[in-house]
Design a protein around this nucleic acid. Structure first.
Lengths: 339, 339
DNA sequence: TTGTATGCGTTATCAT
DNA sequence: ATGATAACGCATACAA
């Protein structure tokens, strides 16, 4: 898009390209006399010179870019994560290259190839289902990669994620404390670490306390509002009496379930308590405002970015996994069971 | 990240790099004998060869990348737009490089520079306030750029946007038909085309019908929930009687206003009708479900992508502006005024 | 059909 | 402090 090159600038000033290159580079500009540095800088300005990252990358073996793969850009939870990533990266002069996979394994494979062809210096991915493990392990051989939000246990890929087991436990403990003894959980896709962990954390806490835990799964690919409705329907058709409290694996599922329950004549929290997960925007504006689990998305993004950076520099052992603590946000969708 | 080059592949097979290059390129592979083509392809496979986009771009003068600048990644309306863009682009073998500016002019300038340094073949931006006009005009000199969602009238930059004037008018007509005569609008930032147009469309329709239109502005940078609360407060303190209907310039503002009205003891739609804008997810799950204006985001993204592509190919007159039609979605936040 | 040679824009090395 | 030169990996014009 721009056609004026370093050579043009150099000729304009009457110096060699290498001098111009030095003058314009931040770390080597001290090797050049202040006067020529100034002249080169001015010439670059007046000629409208822009460095060519491609050429620079080719020569230096580094592009200064980080591939950022996001599973679902419409997930409101992802915004803060991306901001955290972008902030940490741009603070280090790196350019994040974001791409989406719609949580599809095929698209993930394609995107990885493209990113690798772009010679990104590292990859951060929030996409990664269990079935993608082999793929990502192969990618990890070619360069630094870190998982964000999700984990791929046994893959050896470092991850920054939430402590979803603890999150599930928080939900369970809250409901148990309210006095619920018959609980259900509406589960997200089973081949995603986060949901499996939430399920585990919740189930263990419930059974440990002597409660009953009904696990509802559905063959849905994504944890959406519709999935929530479907899971709720399955729960309503479930043998045995209806539980008095429900843990939905994310807010969308919770809201879908709420809508289905309402249709069925069930009031929340009077007839059924509902806990969501993620604390996405607007959950506090619903009717009723949703009790949910909040996660530090921004912080997570920041840490993920820092982790790739350190593994690019090669100074770090790269199998680190960090789990961030979730927080229970109590609102009005949970209450003691009707006596 | 990968270190096996075309040369390695060529040597492995025993041919010249140029032959290997041809064999691996989709358009020139016909120039090579089927047998060597196969051998090269296999060698590339076994050696784990990945093309180097940097080198290829340097040589060809094209990177095959498109910079996609988004003002606010957390805006739920933007997801479909980005999908439309990504789809249209990847269908043409182009890689979108997404970046965010948080709707800040400084970040916009930075991001443009980085993208230009990356030698993107074109730029699509949803960021662009009036004050960014000069900047973007300068960018437009260096290569194809198209605005999406927003417009910059008088900049000569082609745009794919919604017909926001029509959107404002739709809102007005709906409320007028319900019998409202005293209306207000809660306005988004004034230096953004979309909001100014919504204001115009609404105001004109109201006054044309003989109604009263109260325009409430606030010095907020972003059209958020908080902004909605602030605007609503200003309206409540406004001299003269409270209007019976309110048009909020987007859903977040509407929801903020709803929350403020509720605090103030006003019921919706009984005491005040509210219309939002964008139809973002969950607006139908609010209390009350929000009447709003829906926009074809995916389609918009698709068209924007197609427009950059054609202007890269240079075949198109590049000052085209397309306006897509909004649609009124009536839900329960609007009703006839209390008699 | 294949090979040779050159250059894309930079930066690193070596010399001056 | 500055210049000359080579090389990064690839694609193309030209030659064979």
């Amino acid at each position: 898009m721009a056609r004026v090159t370093l050579k043009d600038v150099a000729e304009y000033v009457g110096v060699n390209v290498s001098t111009a290159s030095r003058a314009l580079s931040s770390d080597r500009s001290s090797l050049v006399s202040p006067s020529t540095r100034r002249r080169v800088t001015e010439a670059a300005e007046t000629l409208g010179y822009r460095g060519n990252s491609q050429a620079s990358a080719l020569r230096r073996g580094r592009t200064g870019t980080i591939g950022v793969i996001v599973a679902d850009i419409s997930n409101p939870f992802i915004g803060p994560v991306l901001r955290g990533v972008a902030n940490a990266l741009s603070g280090r002069g790196l350019l994040p290259i974001m791409t989406e996979t719609r949580d599809s394994s095929e698209e993930l494979a394609q995107v990885c190839n493209k990113l690798l062809a772009q010679r990104v210096d590292g990859i951060i991915t929030t996409a990664g289902r269990y079935r993608d493990r082999a793929l990502l392990k192969k990618i990890a051989l070619e360069g630094p990669i870190v998982l964000a939000v999700r984990q791929l246990p046994g893959s050896g890929i470092p991850a920054i994620a939430h402590d979803d087991v603890a999150g599930g436990r928080l939900a369970a403990e809250h409901l148990l404390e309210l006095g619920h003894t018959r609980l259900a959980q509406l589960e997200g896709p089973e081949d995603i670490w986060s949901f499996e962990s939430r399920a585990t954390g919740f189930r263990e806490a419930v059974t440990k306390a002597g409660g009953t835990c009904i696990d509802i799964q559905a063959a849905v690919r994504l944890p959406t509002f519709e999935a929530g409705r479907e899971l709720a329907s399955k729960l309503l058709e479930h043998d045995g009496s209806m539980p008095t409290a429900v843990f939905a694996h994310n807010d969308s599922i919770a809201i879908g379930a709420l809508s289905r329950f309402r249709e069925h004549g069930l009031r929340c929290p009077d007839d059924v308590s509902v806990v969501g997960f993620n604390d996405v925007p607007l959950t506090d504006q619903l009717n009723p405002p949703l009790t949910t689990i909040r996660l530090p998305g921004y912080e997570l993004g920041r840490l993920a970015a820092e982790l790739v950076v350190t593994s690019i520099d090669g100074t770090e052992s790269t199998t680190k996994t960090v789990l961030l603590s979730p927080e229970l946000i109590v609102r009005e969708s949970t209450a003691p069971p009707a006596s």
